[in-house]
Design a binder for these strands. Structure first.
Length: 263
DNA sequence: ATGGTAGCTTTGCTA
C-alpha cells in the first residue's frame, strides 16, 4: 500500500494536479491539508471518477483537511479528543478549527493533520499551536497498542532539526524552529510515533515559500511528516518527497510526502 | 525599505 500526505494550498485550485498525482504515483491513501473550502465546496467528483472516496472537514476559507482513499474509508472522525479551540477575533467565542480528520483506510488508521502555524514567537497563536500539539500527543498516546496501525501525517509547521531549514540564521527569531515547538514534536515521537520518511530522504525539504525564489534557490524546509506507530513503522519499505510537484505553474508551496508499506 | 507570492468570502487575513 502507498500512503501520502500533501498540503495542497486550495483543493479547488489544485484538483487537476492532485488527481494526476494520485494516478501517476499510484497512491492508495492521500491525506490532504489546506483544502481552503467548506464541505459543500469540495470537488468530490474528480476524485470519485478515478476511484477514490473522500472524507473532508472544512468550515470556511481557512484550513480544511481531507483523506481520499481507494482502499476504503471507515470510522471517520473529525478532530481528536481534547483538541483546542481558537478565535481569530476578540469577542468571538473560540471554536474548533478544521485541522484534523481521521479514518481507517485499508486497515491503517490515517490522520490528516494541519498543525497551527504559530505565526510569531510573541503571538498567542504560538501558545495555541503548543496546546494543540500537546493535546494531540495525549490523544495519540492513548491510541497506541502493540498492533495499532496508525499514521499521523500532515503539515506539522515544525522543522525538528537545524538541517530542516536552509539557513538557521534566517530563523533566529522565528517560529517553526523554537525549542518549545521542537519539544512538542519530539514528545509525539517519544510517545511512540516514528518519522519513517527522514531515513529515506536525508537533507530533503517538503516546503518552499512562494516568495524570494525559494524553490529554485533550494531554500526550503522540512515541515511535513508521516509519524507511524511501531506496528505500522515496521511495514515501511520506502519513502520519498515528490519535488516534481513543486515545479511549474500552479504548484502548491508544499511537495507530497509518500510512504510505501508492505502488505 | 518589514519588501516578496498565492489563495480566499479579496481593499485584509492567512500562510
Amino acid at each position: 500500500m502507498r500512503l501520502a500526505t500533501w498540503n495542497v494550498n486550495s483543493v479547488r485550485t489544485r484538483v487537476d494536479r492532485v488527481t494526476a498525482f494520485l494516478e501517476r504515483s499510484e497512491v492508495d491513501v492521500l491525506a490532504i491539508q489546506e483544502t481552503k473550502c467548506r464541505d459543500d465546496q469540495f470537488p468530490h467528483l474528480p476524485f470519485e471518477a478515478i476511484g477514490y472516496e473522500v472524507a473532508h472537514v472544512g468550515l470556511n476559507q481557512w484550513n480544511g483537511v481531507a483523506i481520499v482513499s481507494r482502499v476504503g474509508i471507515e470510522d471517520v472522525q473529525v478532530g481528536f479528543d481534547g483538541m483546542p479551540s481558537w478565535s481569530s477575533k476578540e469577542g468571538v467565542d473560540p471554536a474548533p478549527e478544521a485541522r484534523a480528520i481521521g479514518a481507517t483506510c485499508g486497515g491503517v488508521r490515517t490522520w490528516s493533520l494541519y498543525v497551527p502555524n504559530g505565526r510569531q514567537l510573541s503571538d498567542p497563536h504560538l501558545a495555541y499551536k503548543l496546546e494543540w500539539l500537546e493535546a494531540l500527543r495525549t490523544a495519540a498516546a492513548g491510541w497506541l497498542t502493540d498492533d495499532a496501525q496508525i499514521a499521523l501525517t500532515g503539515d506539522w509547521n515544525i522543522a525538528p532539526e537545524d538541517g530542516d531549514v536552509w539557513d538557521m540564521a534566517v530563523f533566529a527569531h522565528s517560529t517553526h524552529v523554537s525549542p518549545p515547538e521542537r519539544a512538542a514534536f519530539a514528545a509525539v515521537v517519544e510517545a511512540g510515533y516514528a518519522d519513517v520518511v527522514r531515513p529515506y530522504t536525508p537533507g530533503e525539504f517538503t516546503y518552499w515559500d512562494y516568495t524570494q525564489l525559494r524553490f529554485p534557490r533550494r531554500e526550503g524546509m522540512r515541515i511535513d511528516f508521516a509519524l507511524c506507530s511501531p506496528a505500522l513503522a515496521a511495514r515501511v519499505t520506502g519513502a520519498s518527497i515528490d519535488r516534481q510537484e513543486r515545479k511549474g505553474k500552479g504548484a502548491s508551496d508544499h511537495a507530497p510526502v509518500v510512504v510505501e508499506l508492505t502488505d
